[in-house]
């Protein structure tokens, strides 16, 4: 039931993208997103899409796996699309009752849709190819300069990795409790909005209790291992850049430069 949510999940396989240093992938995702918002012509988007397509091929993650994750943001996408389509002022093209579709509106809506789709697929590609542990290691390492500003970088990264780690656990827990209540005749699928909200109580109460129980256990286990934050803490597997990582940085910069030149300078 809940297994369909692929957003933010890791896909286990072996590929160049999986082996890349997580710092490279984080930087790449950030640059890719920035590039999406700097570009404002067709060729720029074609190039961004092509770059993403190559990355997807290199990742060995089946494409339909990513599309499955898109389903969760379909609503948001439609929302943005409709609003931009009808509410952008400009030269009218079609008139539907009181609503006007403008030329600028069509352009804007198309742009937003393409941006959103590329953005979501791009960032889910990162989470699909990077384990949560690597992800937070990478984040911690990239945010290190902020330590000078007294930002508790290690603690933030630790909280993030715990939160990420708990997603599948709580999802499994939800599945289990749901099944247990269905076995007791609970019905989560029929009825009106109020009935459905009421039907969630037998699911939510045990889920909250489970979350607290697990948090408590984890805190005790960390305490028992003398965890005391990031001060003087070393890593078992420190991140080390390999040759392929430098090459990936080079490719990335090349892409970024090219997409900006093409995406901002060419007409259309």
């Amino acid at each position: 039931m809940l297994r369909d949510i692929t957003l933010g999940q890791y896909y286990q396989t072996d590929s160049l993208l999986h082996r890349l240093d997580s710092r490279v992938k984080l930087t790449a995702t950030l640059l890719f997103i920035i590039s999406l918002f700097l570009v404002n012509n067709l060729w720029g988007y074609v190039m961004a899409a092509a770059f993403l397509a190559v990355c997807i091929r290199l990742s060995h993650v089946p494409f339909r796996y990513m599309v499955k994750g898109m389903r969760t943001i379909l609503f948001l996408l439609l929302f943005a699309l409709v609003f931009n389509l009808f509410l952008t002022p400009g030269t009218p093209v079609v008139r539907l009752w009181k609503l006007t579709v403008t030329k600028e509106g069509i352009r804007m809506a198309a742009q937003i849709a393409v941006r959103l789709v590329l953005l979501i697929i791009g960032s889910s590609l990162m989470t699909l190819t990077t384990t949560p542990n690597h992800l937070t290691d990478g984040l911690e390492s990239l945010m290190k300069p902020l330590k000078k500003l007294r930002v508790p970088v290690h603690e933030v990264a630790m909280m993030m990795s715990i939160a990420l780690r708990f997603i599948p656990i709580l999802m499994e827990e939800t599945d289990k409790i749901m099944k247990a209540q269905i076995a007791r005749g609970a019905d989560f699928e029929s009825g009106n909005l109020i009935q459905r909200a009421k039907a969630m109580v037998p699911l939510l109460v045990p889920l909250f209790i489970a979350a607290f129980r697990r948090a408590n256990d984890l805190a005790l286990a960390m305490e028992a291992r003398c965890y005391r934050g990031g001060e003087g803490r070393t890593k078992m597997k420190p991140l080390v850049y390999q040759r392929r990582d430098y090459m990936a940085y080079a490719v990335l910069l090349l892409y970024f430069a090219a997409v900006i030149v093409i995406g901002r300078i060419l007409p259309i």
């Binding site: 409790i177 247990a180 209540q181 076995a183 007791r184 005749g185 109460v205 045990p206």
Partner: peptide
Amino acid sequence: KKELRSSVGLVFQYPEHQLF
């Protein structure tokens, strides 16, 4: 299905986690 689920009662592992 509901009839089946009342006829075949299933007690999961750690059933106390379903109390609410």
